[in-house]
């Protein structure tokens, strides 16, 4: 699995993805890690199929006992169906996930890990050197959905927002925004159900100082491409299936 460091100043952000051994019929996903001196948070750690390569990759940065926290932006299987396996590997860990999905996520198996519910208004995760903000992103696409904003590194982990469907060997960063647009259009129009929710999120996110917008599928936006993405998304009409 490819490992790329996004930020390294007192603590690190690492993205994992482009697993060469992933089955072709599984969607490719990006997993993120925030590593501090003695703790480690995995963001959207992935589906069951990805558990072994993901944990193996994480062991390059942290011992198992220091992987203390997991975050699930929403309930989808590609986000967190590996929960039952993490539950065996990290019995002391905490899972931060939307409150409304608790009873659903427990179906994946969550007996040992502590479920820390995130209420609709959002919250924070204090990792010591950084306090992460949990930004509500409901209905984008899931009805209970959060992004993670790091005010120090200025990275916004945006879950499915900004996602693109493309080949598993695609580069980690957006290089040509105009060319990238077509890889995102269908995903956003079909998976995102609400223009109202989209505009509400854009309004909230525009207030944040963002240097990197890091989605769970596809490529990461850097610098001016973040603003370009927000403009493009703002102009896009979503919820396309109801028009069929």
């Amino acid at each position: 699995m490819k490992r790329t460091t996004l930020f390294d100043a007192g603590y690190q952000w690492i993205v994992f993805g482009r697993d060469p051994n992933k089955a072709e019929n599984l969607i490719d996903t990006n997993q993120y890690m925030i590593r501090t001196a003695n703790r480690c948070l995995l963001l959207d750690p992935g589906g069951t199929e990805l558990f072994a390569p993901m944990l193996a990759a994480a062991l390059h940065y942290a011992p198992v006992e220091e992987i203390t926290d997991l975050f699930a932006s929403h309930q989808d299987p590609d986000i967190i169906s590996s929960l039952g396996l993490w539950d065996q590997a990290l019995p002391q860990a905490r899972l931060h996930a939307p409150a409304i999905w608790e009873g659903f996520l427990r179906h994946f198996g969550c007996e040992k890990i502590e479920y820390v519910p995130i209420e609709d208004a959002g919250g924070t995760i204090d990792l010591g050197p950084v306090e992460l903000e949990l930004i509500p992103a409901h209905y984008l696409h899931s009805s209970g959905n959060f992004n993670v904003y790091d005010p120090k590194s200025k990275i916004l982990m945006s879950g499915d927002i900004g996602a693109a469907l493309e080949s598993p060997d695609a580069p980690m960063f957006v290089e040509d925004f105009s060319a990238h647009v077509e890889k995102m259009r269908f995903f956003h129009q079909r998976w995102m159900p609400s223009n109202r929710a989209k505009n509400d999120w854009i309004k909230r996110v525009r207030k944040l100082d963002i240097e990197m917008l890091a989605p769970q599928h596809g490529r990461i936006f850097k610098g001016d491409d973040v603003e370009r993405f927000l403009d493009w998304f703002e102009a896009l009409s979503v919820g396309s299936a109801v028009q069929v």
Partner: peptide, 27 residues
């Protein structure tokens, strides 16, 4: 438990070059 056991064996095989590979052994 059997699934996890199987997956842990795969992790072991995949992480042979990882610095913290031994941390999984007691678990």
């Amino acid at each position: 438990y059997e699934q996890a056991n199987k997956q842990f064996k795969t992790v072991s095989a995949l992480s042979c070059e990882a610095v913290y590979k031994d941390s999984l052994v007691p678990i």
